[in-house]
Amino acid sequence: MNIIVCIKQVPGTNKVEVDPVTGVLKREKVDSKMNPYDLYALETALRLKEAHGGVVKVISMGPPQAKEVLKEAFSMGADDGVLISDRAFGGSDVLSTSYTLSQGIKKLDGFDLILCGKQTTDGDTAQVGPELSEFLKIPSVSNVTKLIEVTNENITVEMDMQNTVEIAKINFPCLLCVDKDIFQPRLPSYLKKMATKNKEIRVLSLNDFEDKNTDNYGLNGSPTQVQRIFPPESNGDHELWAGDGKSVTTKLYDKIKELKFV
């Protein structure tokens, strides 16, 4: 089976804070790492390969530093890595990210299955998977919690649909967004890391694509615009009651009584 896993490099921590006065985001470290949700997609791909044979390719769109997450995927067992990187892709929203990924994927030699994570820890939209499947004109499902059966033509999976559980058979080629906890991701292997240290990562840029029109990429190709970023506000009304246990409990009781909860 020919499997492509989409992985994104995200900031090492999402514990960002916005300075309410200056409006500047304060970050503890500027480290970055693989989007944690993508580990589950990669693990799913590796399990499928172990059971059914095939090749696992990881693909990421991002700045040149995003090579690091591809290397991390090698040390977990991915066979091949592709970085999609070009100045022209800067400022991409979901639409242009998905379109760019689809252009890159068309340059690889085919696939049976594409796996995405549930969402990222930065942009956090969970939209890239479904949009990518549209550009590739393939079926897709999200919230995959279990793989049930794999044949040459299709894959049967279980999906968590909030109040119901759905079992569906999806024809290849297709795209799945897997939920966290579908499988426990393995740890990177030191031996694999050493063995793949100098492994080549193919880099695709705009010039390699079928569609080279810059209007379709990066900011130009992004219908959404982030206008401003600000810290979340806390609720309006505040009262803080301190004192001995008895008096604060009385205040608490009186208040919930006043609000007609007792």
Partner: peptide, 8 residues
């Protein structure tokens, strides 16, 4: 960013 910032 996991609820740490708001974006317009």
């Amino acid at each position: 960013f996991g609820g740490n910032i708001m974006a317009q």
